[in-house]
């Protein structure tokens, strides 16, 4: 059997969802028999080297780089999976949504009670920095997403069940206890 090819990325996320992938424990040995990893922080491949079957997205889109990578994934992956609350609804970074971006930046870099050494009141403006979006967007509001696995982080059993079903082309079993939003 040809191995399915997997790619993962973390956009505006905390890497907790990737940690939860590792939380499948010894089943990771089974996984490695079934799949080959392409672009992913796990193997540090930076660019897609071949077409990918399943792309796993952690985190929502808070800046231009996130959008670029998400679109890059969509172009190169047959199936895209939103993994975790941030990818699905923006998550904690989206708590800034509804607050004007200027207000957010001022609070973080100028007026905040913990700001000590920004006497010239500079907001981050290096051209290397990706541009912040007006709000944090869920991934499916930017590109088409095929499957959603909620959780913060998603339970390892949910990830395993879903991945196993996708890899082996079987229907997905979702026990009640494994789908949680927190």
């Amino acid at each position: 059997m040809n191995k399915k090819i997997l790619a993962t990325t973390s956009l505006a996320g905390c890497f907790g969802c990737h940690m939860s992938i590792l939380d499948i424990d010894e089943r990771i040995l089974d996984l490695i028999e079934l799949v080959e990893f392409n672009k992913s922080p796990i193997d540090d491949i930076k660019k897609f080297t071949k077409p990918v079957d399943i792309g796993i997205i952690e985190g929502g889109c808070c800046n231009s780089e996130n959008v670029e990578i998400l679109k890059y994934f969509r172009e190169n992956c047959k199936i895209l999976v939103s993994l975790g609350e941030c990818a699905i609804m923006g998550g904690l970074p989206a708590m800034r949504n509804g607050i004007p971006i200027e207000e957010c930046l001022k609070e973080a870099y100028i007026d905040g009670p913990t700001v000590q050494e920004n006497k010239e009141h500079i907001l981050p403006n290096d051209e290397e920095l990706p541009l912040l979006l007006d709000q944090v967007y869920p991934c499916h509001e930017i590109v088409k997403i095929d499957y959603f696995l909620p959780g913060c982080p998603p339970r390892a059993d949910l990830i395993w069940n879903a991945l196993y079903a996708l890899i082996t082309d079987n229907p997905m079993e979702i026990p009640y206890e494994v789908v949680k939003f927190d």
Partner: peptide, 28 residues
């Protein structure tokens, strides 16, 4: 609304969330 379940004190005991679980909402 702004329902950030991971940051909510009522998560796990919330009826809105529980109904979402019961009716298998994965994403709105």
């Amino acid at each position: 609304g702004n329902h950030f379940c991971p940051a909510c004190e009522k998560s796990g005991n919330c009826e809105l969330q529980a109904l979402a679980y019961r009716y298998k909402m994965l994403v709105p």
